[in-house]
């Protein structure tokens, strides 16, 4: 006999004036290899078709389905119910604007982040269609990809003490983004340029070092190392700037 799972799910539809934030209980019989993707879709199709949540690839690749699962931010699609107790509490990710129920607006947050960090290669070189590509050491390429693996699910932001305290904190995802360009030889920005972006309390010096970001990252990005690396780098840059003055 399989378990009867009890789901406590946060409900609120901001577009419905009669709706107020509350928890709602759903009961579902567990099946083999059940994930929260399967469970939530079954609840929507069989019990409450108005239930809002976000899934896209359902394969842990796209980062759509970040939510707080029994108190911990994570991706719902690769969370297996057999790894959870019989009572499962699901809440939307904090920090991001709520769209409804378990769905939040990560898109606007991250788009703003691209602008703040100028998340693109800065170069004065023009592309030459007739030339060979610029060479790159494979180890460098692999190193860049390692940091590019972020899926922008928002879990690290939701789990971040500083981000919960101050709205303008860039957070691990943004700092990791800066690190990605910093190690890319194609980007001509200098340490001083990066200092302008993250050399302050909104950036690397705002990090309190609690490191929940690394604990919850579903892609296991080396966020702790990156934050340490940037803090050292920006600390040195800061000193250099003082002596130059």
């Amino acid at each position: 006999m399989s378990r009867l799972l009890k789901f406590n799910i946060f409900r609120y539809n901001p577009e419905d004036t009669l709706s107020s934030p509350h928890m709602e209980e759903f009961v579902l019989e567990e099946t083999d290899a059940m994930t929260l993707f399967i469970a939530l879709n079954r609840i929507r199709e069989e019990q409450d078709p108005s239930l809002q949540f976000d899934f896209c690839c359902r394969a842990g690749i796209c980062g759509s389905c970040g939510m707080v699962i029994n108190g911990r931010p994570g991706l719902a699609c690769h969370t297996k119910t057999k790894d959870l107790p019989g009572e499962i509490t699901l809440l939307p990710l904090p920090v991001f604007k709520l769209v409804g129920d378990l769905s939040v607006d990560t898109g606007s947050w991250f788009r703003e982040m691209y602008t703040k960090t100028e998340s693109w290669i800065h170069t004065d070189k023009e592309f030459d269609a007739d030339a060979l590509e610029e060479r790159m050491d494979n180890k460098v390429a692999v190193g860049i990809y390692e940091l590019e693996r972020c899926v922008e699910c928002g879990c690290c932001i939701s789990a971040c003490g500083t981000a919960r305290l101050r709205e303008d904190f860039l957070g691990a995802a943004a700092l990791n983004r800066v690190a990605r360009f910093l190690i890319d030889p194609r980007d001509q920005r200098t340490d001083s340029d990066y200092y302008e972006i993250i050399g302050n309390d909104m950036g690397i010096f705002g990090c309190m070092g609690l490191l929940a970001c690394e604990d919850v990252c579903p892609k296991h990005l080396p966020l702790q190392n990156q934050l340490g690396f940037l803090r050292r780098k920006m600390g040195i840059t800061s000193l250099k700037r003082i002596f130059r003055k």
């Binding site: 290669i121 592309f127 610029e134 790159m136 494979n138 390429a141 692999v142």
Partner: peptide, 18 residues
């Protein structure tokens, strides 16, 4: 082939020949 090189110019970390 040109498009792959363009993507490299824009920032794609293609794996490289070792």
């Amino acid at each position: 082939p040109i498009e792959m090189r363009r993507l490299a110019h824009w920032g794609v970390p293609w794996n490289r020949v070792v």
